[in-house]
Design a protein around this nucleic acid. Structure first.
Lengths: 127, 127
DNA sequence: CTCAATGCATCGACAAACAATATATCGGCA
DNA sequence: TGCCGATATATTGTTTGTCGATGCATTGAG
């Protein structure tokens, strides 16, 4: 059983996952990584090289805002959803649902397909 | 209401959709476009510039095989799943399901969230 | 003191998706 | 006859997203 989701599959929906995670409350980068990892049973590993550009992108788009935590030691930059970000999240979530339904529908017949071609082995005559 | 799925969301799962469509039977490129478009209620528009490189990639990977239709007029190149392709499809479908569940779980709380925040208070670092 | 974990960030490499473009056949219509 | 849209495959250049590697600094445990 594979451990992590292939990066192919992540493409395009990482923004959605990040927005979704931030909808639960403000988070800083490192915490966001832990949150996504935990909530996905360690399946989603958001690397720093992916996350920070992504967060900056979302901020430039006005979907999130950041604020440095006032502390002398560990520098933490908290990110929070904006109103626009929440609207975007809802919209993207609907798009995602529609898209996921497309895939699911397309793959729904798969269980009925024969696992291997007719090679004189056990013929399963169910349609 | 948007008409087509954003290309962001498509990224990473197009291979899966193409393999899934080919699991229904051999298809040539143009037919594949129509099939995906139809089965998704015109939501998925697979452009030629995306599809042909994708098909060639899948063929190089040994997941599909191609055969030119023997005809004098319209040139049609039929693509068919290989055994390896079918195995890959099943595997990818499982991965997809796991991934989709992650997203769905993450977004499941959304309905419970307030549509708009009362006011922007400080992001108090709770927990 | 050393090392691993925490925490933010950027860089270059690589791959995927797309619009634009190219070529060619076919059927319908004026 | 000529034109055009649909059919059909393919490549090119551009853009964008992801990742591994790397860098720097702080903190706590051993």
């Amino acid at each position: 059983m594979p451990d992590a989701i292939e990066s192919e599959l992540l493409r395009g929906s990482l923004d959605l996952m990040v927005l979704g995670a931030l909808a639960q409350g403000p988070k800083y980068g490192y915490l966001l990584q832990k949150t996504l990892s935990d909530s996905s049973q360690q399946q989603v590993k958001l690397s720093a090289g992916t996350m920070y550009p992504l967060l900056h992108r979302l901020e430039d788009a006005g979907l999130i805002v950041s604020r440095w935590e006032d502390s002398t030691g560990r520098r933490r930059k908290w990110y929070e959803l904006t109103v626009a970000g929440r609207k975007k999240l809802v919209k993207q979530a609907e798009l995602w649902q529609r898209y996921a339904d497309c895939i699911t529908r397309l793959l729904s017949d798969l269980a009925l397909m024969p696992p291997s071609p007719p090679s004189s082995t056990a013929p399963s005559p169910q349609t």
